[in-house]
């Protein structure tokens, strides 16, 4: 087989996998709206706890340090032009619109996505998914839908936690660097509007759906043995990470365009 044939085969395999993923997502959406069934509904609360509640500490720590680092890095620049009081607007805009949702999603892709892929991959390897199919139960409906819906519901809440701690972390460091607390909050308030909050919120929905669907898809298609499950986990994280970054870019473009159309400006961090 020459290089061109290999390239062709690889391209064909990738398209095939993309098609399978598309079908998988379509099935998840179909069962989500048609009604996931008794078992899936019972699973939902457990999944919301595991995906959401258990992720709160790690997401809050991540958020707090993002805000703190932003304060440390931007303070000298703002101090040079005498605008250090306005550092809050930079931190809040960066955290709420971009870094908060993206880093929360990346943390979740690692913590939750890996766990979902490993759990479902092990179920596949030990024939539990086949057993479900043999009992005439659709595993997408019973296993993927509750995980997908739980991720979709919990992701925005986790992003809010991350954003809140990000702003708090920024304030904490900024005040220690000499910024007046009142000024910090005043300019922070000016630097944010409902649409900015909505931007972070809408992004988190998309990121949550990508993380859950990719993790479940990779778990359902894990290769045999421990090696197969490990490989599926790695692939799930890499694919989720890339999907988050690509989606973030296109969502930023789209939401900024919407903002321009509606209000004629995407806002100024200097108020």
């Amino acid at each position: 087989m020459n290089a061109v044939e290999k390239l062709g085969e690889k391209g064909s395999d990738s398209l095939d996998a993309l098609g399978q993923y598309g079908n998988f997502v379509a099935s998840i959406l179909y069962w989500t709206f048609r009604g996931p069934g008794r078992f899936a509904r019972q699973q939902l609360v457990r999944q919301m706890y595991e995906i959401g509640t258990l992720s709160v500490p790690v997401v809050m720590i991540t958020g707090a340090f993002i805000g703190a680092v932003l304060a440390v890095e931007t303070f000298p620049q703002f101090q040079q032009i005498g605008l250090e009081g306005r550092i809050g607007s930079v931190i809040i805009a960066s955290v709420v619109k971009q870094i908060g949702p993206v880093l929360t999603a990346v943390m979740l892709a690692g913590r939750v996505g890996g766990a979902l892929t490993a759990e479902l991959g092990t179920m596949r390897v030990t024939e539990q998914i086949d057993a479900m199919r043999a009992m005439a139960a659709d595993p997408i409906r019973s296993l993927a839908v509750p995980r997908f819906v739980a991720c979709l519901i919990m992701m925005p809440f986790l992003t809010i936690f991350s954003d809140a701690l990000g702003v708090f972390g920024g304030w904490f460091i900024a005040v220690r660097l000499g910024v007046d607390s009142h000024e910090f909050w005043m300019y922070s308030q000016q630097g944010i509007d409902n649409f900015t909050l909505f931007t972070g919120f809408i992004k988190s929905f998309f990121f949550g759906s990508a993380i859950a669907s990719i993790a479940c898809f990779k778990g359902f298609n894990a290769g045999s043995g421990a090696q197969g499950v490990g490989k599926a986990c790695t692939e799930a994280f890499v694919a989720s990470f890339i999907a988050i970054l690509v989606m973030n870019f296109f969502l930023a473009m789209l939401l900024n365009s919407i903002s321009q159309i509606l209000w004629g400006s995407s806002g100024s961090i200097l108020g």
Partner: peptide, 25 residues
């Protein structure tokens, strides 16, 4: 279908395993 390794759902109790097909169908 009795699978080779049993294929019991390991996150569920014995009760929930056996109840699964009844609850589904």
């Amino acid at each position: 279908f009795l699978f080779q390794g049993g294929a019991l759902f390991d996150s569920m109790t014995v009760y929930d395993n056996i109840a699964f097909p009844m609850r589904e169908h």
